[in-house]
Design a protein around this nucleic acid. Structure first.
Lengths: 186, 186
DNA sequence: GAATGCAATGTAATACTATTACATTTTCTC
DNA sequence: GAGAAAATGTAATAGTATTACATTGCATTC
């Protein structure tokens, strides 16, 4: 009983339906794709929807499980292809340390335009809580500016960056004995 | 025919021997371990030696291959345990994007003391060349300072960080048509 | 509206990375 | 030397990702 969505350059019927606020974010993502001349297919929309449903980073195989329906049992490449697409278009981020994926925060925000395009260019920064596994995307641009500056000096051409800070979020830190950076390096 | 090494708090005979300059770096690493009350065993020394032998990041299973001798066929946990130890003591770094390992640059430097301990505290920064796979560790401290500042504001307790910049090194960039950050984000 | 070409998806197999659990050996401390 | 702790050996398995090739769907042109 799924009705086709009013996606401008999209394909068939999504196999999943999501709560209204998620659908809204999906529509926004679809609009962004159209704008970039990319196709937000049903498959990709489903995967993005599932990622948006999670409060925490999701693994590819978790998504694979959740994609299963009575009719279809997708294989790994299905999910990885969708993830690649979503990554390329800046709709999600990959958390390297977790081998997991989260939506780009900007998708959750109200603004429909993508003024922040540059800040999202595969150059996001994250705070990862070891305890509750929550990941927060940082809006700061200073880090990226610094990195750009360094790379300019070295004639290194930046294509993408990942900045991941692992530790304890404020909530978890208040519940546990504080453990700071534990040991000495060279 | 391997003779025991003069390691201060070490164990049995290493199964591998390395060129003099590598042995020198290994001795330095051993001294650092002793200083920290940690044991640089033959196994760990072998693994570190192999990592030092590579110009580029090495995967765990590559090391596993290289550890094989006529007598011994180590299993994965052997390598992973050694890697964990070396990581914990700041002797190597893990490049998240590559699931691979490189020596801490300071091991290669001349200074015997570890004045830079803080800068190495699981908080290194890397430039990764997509083309030649070479990884350069950056000495800069600004990025870490910025991150510390941000985290302080958010009451986030930092335990470790990774900053990975992927792109083209100066050499490779000069050989190829320049590809900058390719697409737009949200 | 058939033909063509390209993008997207389906499918099976496999490669690569990492951990668990438990037995054994080595080393340290007393 | 005995006991405890650290390190290693071993087998099995879990988790993540890719390759290669077949098929389908969509878009453009004639």
């Amino acid at each position: 009983m799924n009705m086709p969505y009013p996606t401008s350059s999209s394909t068939a019927t999504p196999t999943h339906t999501f709560p209204a606020h998620i659908e809204h974010q999906l529509d926004k993502a679809t609009a962004l794709c159209t704008q970039q001349g990319a196709r937000m297919t049903a498959q990709r929309r489903d995967v993005l929807g599932l990622i948006l449903m999670h409060a925490r980073p999701v693994g590819a195989y978790d998504l694979l499980e959740e994609l299963k329906t009575a009719e279809r049992r997708p294989a790994p490449p299905t999910v990885y292809r969708a993830l690649d697409f979503l990554l390329e278009h800046g709709l999600i981020h990959r958390i390297e340390r977790l081998s997991a994926f989260i939506p780009c925060t900007n998708l959750r925000h109200c603004s429909h335009t993508h003024e922040h395009s540059e800040a999202c260019l595969h150059t996001a920064q994250f705070l990862i809580c070891r305890d509750c596994k929550t990941v927060t995307e940082i809006a700061d641009t200073t880090v990226l500016e610094t990195l750009k500056h360094i790379c300019k000096n070295e004639n290194f051409v930046i294509q993408s960056t990942s900045v991941e800070v692992e530790g304890l979020c404020a909530d978890c830190a208040s519940k546990h004995p504080t453990k700071e950076l534990p040991h000495q390096g060279v």
